[in-house]
C-alpha cells in the first residue's frame, strides 16, 4: 500500500502548521514590538554608549539575511556558549529580535515626526521628560507609526516561513512534508501559498481598521 495520496488527515496537519505559524508570529510580534518600543525609549533618553550600540546592532540585523541570523542562533549559539537551543526557542529569539530592529526604526522616526514646538511648549509648562514622552510624544508617534508597522508585520509574517529551515513544523514545513510524500508540488505549494496570502490580506485589513481608528483625530488637510 502506498501513502502517496492526499488524506483527510492532511487538513489537520495543515491546520496545525497554520497554528504554529500564527502562534509564532503573534509571539514574536508582541515581543518584538515591546522590545522595539523599549529601545526607542532608551534612544529617546540619549543614554551615552548604549544608544550607539543599539543603532549599530539594529542596522546589522536589518542588513543581514534572517536565514543567517537563524543559523547563527540555532547552530552557532549552542556550539559557542554551550547552551541548549530548541528550534522553537531559536525561531522565537531570532524573529523577535528582527522585528524589534525594524520596529525600532519605525518608532524612532515616529518620535522624530512629532512637532518640536509641542515639546518646547510642554517643557515651558514644566512637564518632565517622561511626562512629555508619555502624554505628548507616544500617542502621536503611535499614530504615525501604525501605517509602516502594518507593512512591517505583513512582511514579518512571510519571514516566519524561514523557520521551517531549522525544523519548526510551521506551515512551510508541513508543505515540505506533504510535497515529499504526495509529489504534487503544484497542489501543495499553491494551497500553502494561498493560505499565506489570505493571512497577509486579513492582517492588512485588520491593520487598516486600526490605522483609521488611531488617526481619526489626525485629519490630513493638504499642504
Amino acid at each position: 500500500m502506498r501513502y502517496a495520496d492526499f488524506t483527510p488527515y492532511d487538513l489537520v496537519l495543515l491546520a496545525q502548521g497554520l497554528g504554529v505559524t500564527l502562534g509564532l508570529f503573534a509571539a514574536t510580534t508582541l515581543i518584538g514590538l515591546a522590545l522595539g518600543a523599549a529601545l526607542t525609549v532608551l534612544h529617546y533618553y540619549r543614554v551615552p554608549v548604549i544608544g550607539h550600540v543599539v543603532v549599530a546592532v539594529t542596522e546589522l540585523l536589518k542588513n543581514s539575511p534572517v536565514l543567517v541570523q537563524l543559523f547563527l542562533v540555532f547552530f552557532g549559539m549552542p556550539a559557542f556558549f554551550q547552551v541548549n537551543m530548541t528550534p522553537v526557542t531559536a525561531a522565537l529569539l531570532t524573529v523577535s529580535l528582527n522585528t524589534a530592529a525594524f520596529a525600532f526604526v519605525i518608532f524612532r522616526s515616529g518620535v522624530e515626526a512629532v512637532d518640536r514646538d509641542q515639546i518646547e511648549a510642554a517643557r515651558v509648562f514644566g512637564h518632565s521628560r517622561w511626562q512629555i514622552l508619555r502624554r505628548i510624544i507616544s500617542p502621536q508617534a503611535a499614530a504615525f507609526s501604525v501605517g509602516p508597522l502594518i507593512g512591517l508585520l505583513v512582511n514579518q509574517l512571510q519571514v516566519t516561513s524561514l523557520i521551517s529551515v531549522i525544523g519548526v513544523a510551521d506551515l512551510t514545513k508541513i508543505g515540505n512534508i506533504l510535497n515529499l510524500r504526495t509529489l504534487e508540488p503544484f497542489v501543495v505549494w499553491s494551497v500553502i501559498g494561498l493560505t499565506y496570502y489570505l493571512c497577509a490580506k486579513a492582517l492588512a485589513a485588520l491593520g487598516g481598521r486600526l490605522e483609521r481608528h488611531l488617526r481619526r483625530s489626525v485629519v490630513w488637510q493638504g499642504l
Binding site: 508540488p185 503544484f186 496570502y197
Partner: peptide, 21 residues
C-alpha cells in the same frame, strides 16, 4: 499582489519542485 504576499521560500519551492513536473 500575489508575489508580494506569498513568502519567497514558498514561491521558490513551487518553482523548484513544480517546473520538472
Amino acid at each position: 499582489d500575489l508575489f508580494r504576499n506569498v513568502p519567497f521560500i514558498v514561491q521558490l519551492f513551487f518553482f523548484f519542485y513544480g517546473l520538472p513536473e
